[in-house]
Amino acid sequence: MTQAAVIAEGLVKEFGSVKALNGIDLTVERGQVVGLLGPNGAGKTTAVRILSTLLTPTAGRAMIAGYDVVKQPEQVRKAIGLTGQAAAVNEYLTGRENLMMFGALYHLPKTYVKERTDYLLESFELTEAANRPAKTYSGGMRRRLDLASSLIAQPSILFLDEPTTGLDPRSRLGMWDVINDLVANGTTVLLTTQYLEEADQLAQQIVVIDHGLVIAKGTAEELKDQIGGDRIEISIVDPSRVNEAVDAIRAVASGEPLVEELKISAPVSGGSTVLVEAVRALDSQGVEVSDLVLRRPTLDDVFLHLTGHVAEEDKPAEKPKRGRSRS
């Protein structure tokens, strides 16, 4: 089959008068990692919940592994694994019991579930804690168990809803390693995140959504290019040498330099070799420089540029009051 792993067309979801999704189109090719990036309340969780058959869309349709999420939820569920924002494990059961239970509920044979459980516990570094209730696990361990639970049936498509929200930096890096390993083994991943860095690190394609709409998509590089690529920035020591400095920069830049007192900046293309050229040009003009940097736009810049507001990073994961979340 050549069909994409995830196809969503014009997904709309209304909760009463609130429109959580306003017509989202999304494609995830097999083996690809797509990051759904957006601030709290953008519609990320709603989208994932529709794609994983938990919610039915008000309008539009979605196909997962070639199956319709509304008409063939059973087949979709066999093909997917879901790791939500809240750790979805039974706290009173041990890690092993949790995995065995989910395996049984996937209708997998017992011998297979046993082997798979041992394998997952081992590869997620949970073997030692396997026979302890999940209640005693650290946040990072719980997340790993959570992710392991969604992998028990070796799903070809994995949905990760904010997989690292609430984790300390070390556990976050560990989680990234785990996800990268999965991807290396050919799993298709759709992950949501409000961490720009995370999307940059993990995803080949990034879809930026805000207020239930896709406002941009592309690779991290493409998105950065959208707001003008790299800029070179220098600071000079002697104000009387501004003209020479501007000339030197103009020679290496791809656009007109901008002068702000002692600071001169200009768009460039060609990456860090530009820096070398700039140093040579400035040197030949005899201009003394106190600072010289090549600044690449971050996804933060992209986000600000696209949405007109900064991504809200450090808010705790939203906790909607009732069963209908709209992130």
Binding site: L82, H107, G323
Partner: peptide, 19 residues
């Protein structure tokens, strides 16, 4: 079960609806 997200996991499994 509803407050921990366990319900989401159960509902995403190919298990019987009433189970």
């Amino acid at each position: 079960a509803m407050s921990t997200g366990l319900i989401d996991r159960f509902r995403s499994l190919p298990m019987a609806n009433g189970a």
